[in-house]
Amino acid sequence: MRIGMDARFLVEERTGVETYFHELLVRLIRLGGAEEYLLFRGGGLLPRLPEGRWRCVEADGRAWAWGLTGKLAGERLDLFYSPVTAFPLTGGVKIVSTVHDLSWHYVPSSYSALERFRQRRWTALAATHAHALVVVSDSTGRDLSGLFPSTSPKVSTISPGVDEGFFRTVGPREEQRVRDRYGLPGRYLLALAAFHPRKNLPQLVEAFDRFRSSSPERIQLLLAGRGGKDSARLLARIARSPFSRDILLAGYVPREDLPALYSGADLFALVSRYEGFGIPALEAMACGTPVMVSDLPVFREVCADAAVRVDPENPEAMSEAIAASLQDTPERSRRLEEGIRRAQAYRWEASAGRLRELFRRTAGGPS
């Protein structure tokens, strides 16, 4: 079976969507089988992939969804997979598309009118034209079916996973290397998120200020992630903080630094207003790190009671949760153990197997 893929997301610096696609593709290739993967992409450096039945097909990145028609016809594909809701609109090939979240609908203030229009348009096209839809959580599946009821019969949940490297013990030399790199001499809280309005980082800074005001100990806050449309507002909020010298900006963190960065943190925080899944929370739990998340349906599904859940609009509640999470109590120990168990249930290998089965069912089903 010849499967085309939108491989624009194969990049060295990976966050949510890029991580999801890269990790699944690596496992699909390792699974072997009769499938051949044709990776449609533009220029740029290709991350290392395992040897196997795959090859790249050069494609124009402009007008992507419209420009692949001739390429698809020439490759005689059985299926085309897009890790997002944008996909070729013509070409006579069956489509599988992934919906990661519907934040454009549930937190519309985080997006411009044009962004909301584009996201709704592509999601509606996926709901109508894709032969199968993948969602990353049951919560996202319910959100999608609520907006587009006709999608329910063709939705499958295939969640992200946690790489084996996050479950290992980080040695003291590696931990010190990462501490030195990011300027972390002592205790610290960690947030890993793009600087986007829905990630709610200014509220986390407010919670940190309140916590530090009542704490005798110097603890830093490390904000790791790419800059984004909320950068100016976040930087202005940090500048107003009386503890601004202890709020550090790490920028993009390479994957190889993440296990040590998670493991060294006293608390990992992901207090978004909306998420489709939240891979970093699961990675932090795999590293045995206490986790604080927003009280959202997706985190009740993914983290269960292994994480402390808070109202993302209540910085005082966040501050109290930070203070409680730093105390060495039986409840904290229970959450850490449960977090590792929860993370072990999400593995990329299992998700890749489910995705391959979906490809096979879809390719063999009616047009």
Results as ranks from 00 to 15, higher is better:
Leu249Glu: 13
Ala250Thr: 03
Ala250Val: 13
Ala250Ile: 05
Ala250Asn: 10
Tyr252Arg: 06
Tyr252Pro: 10
Tyr252Phe: 15
Arg255Leu: 02
Glu256Pro: 08
Glu256Asp: 15
Glu256Ala: 14
Glu256Asn: 12
Leu258Gln: 10
Pro259Thr: 05
Leu261Ser: 11
Leu261Cys: 09
Leu261Ala: 11
Leu261His: 13
Leu261Arg: 10
Ser263Ile: 00
Ser263Ala: 15
Ser263Arg: 15
Gly264Leu: 11
Gly264Trp: 09
Gly264Asn: 08
Ala265Glu: 04
Asp266Phe: 00
Asp266Asn: 09
Leu267Ala: 14
Phe268Gln: 11
Ala269Ser: 13
Ala269Phe: 02
Ala269Gln: 08
Ala269Pro: 01
Leu270His: 10
Val271Gln: 12
Ser272Lys: 08
Ser272Gln: 01
Arg273Asp: 02
Tyr274Gln: 14
Glu275Asp: 03
Glu275Ala: 09
Gly276Trp: 06
Gly276His: 10
Gly276Phe: 08
Gly276Leu: 04
Ile279Tyr: 01
Ile279Pro: 00
Ile279His: 07
Ile279Trp: 04
Pro280Gly: 03
Pro280Lys: 09
Ala281Tyr: 02
Ala281Gly: 15
Ala281Ser: 14
Leu282Thr: 08
Leu282Arg: 12
Ala284Arg: 03
Met285Glu: 09
Met285Cys: 11
Ala286Lys: 07
Ala286Gly: 01
Ala286Tyr: 10
Ala286His: 13
Ala286Leu: 03
Cys287Gln: 03
Cys287Tyr: 01
Cys287Lys: 02
Gly288Asp: 11
Gly288Pro: 02
Thr289Tyr: 12
Pro290Asp: 04
Pro290Ala: 07
Pro290Met: 01
Val291Ala: 00
Met292Gln: 05
Val293His: 06
Ser294Met: 05
Asp295Gly: 11
Leu296Ser: 00
Pro297Val: 03
Pro297Ile: 04
Pro297Ser: 05
Val298Met: 06
Arg300Thr: 05
Glu301Thr: 02
Glu301Ser: 10
Val302Leu: 07
Cys303Asn: 07
Cys303His: 06
Cys303Trp: 10
Ala304Phe: 01
Asp305Gln: 13
Asp305Ala: 14
Asp305Tyr: 00
Ala306Val: 02
Ala306His: 12
Ala306Trp: 12
Ala307His: 14
Ala307Met: 12
Val308Gly: 01
Arg309Ile: 00
Arg309Trp: 06
Val310Ser: 03
Val310Ala: 11
Val310Ile: 15
Asp311Lys: 07
Glu313Arg: 14
Glu313Gln: 14
Glu313Lys: 13
Asn314Ile: 01
Asn314Glu: 12
Pro315Val: 04
Glu316Gln: 14
Ala317Cys: 00
Met318Ala: 13
Met318Phe: 00
